[in-house]
């Protein structure tokens, strides 16, 4: 039973991270389209922000793996 709940939790965490990283990606693409000359800055900030969001999601996933 707890295994099933943990799997659902991992799925929810992935949904959250997916929405967050998707937003970052779409906004970054818009920004690049608007100002192609700062593509380098936008790209590194995009990866940085995506990594920060991913961190929160990964904590949830790790917890759901190790919960028994």
């Amino acid at each position: 039973m707890t295994g099933t709940l943990a799997a659902i939790g991992a799925g929810l965490a992935v949904i959250g991270a997916g929405i967050g990283i998707g937003n970052i990606g779409s906004k970054a693409m818009e920004a690049i389209a608007r100002q192609p000359e700062v593509v380098g800055d936008i790209r590194s900030n995009m990866i940085l922000m995506a990594a920060l969001i991913e961190g929160a999601a990964l904590i949830a996933i790790i917890l759901s793996i190790f919960v028994k």
Binding site: A51, A56, L58, I59, I61, I62
Partner: peptide, 14 residues
């Protein structure tokens, strides 16, 4: 630092 630790670990392990 905890997220640094978990991010690398979880990405590679996954």
């Amino acid at each position: 630092p905890m997220t640094l630790m978990l991010r690398l670990f979880a990405n590679i392990t996954a």
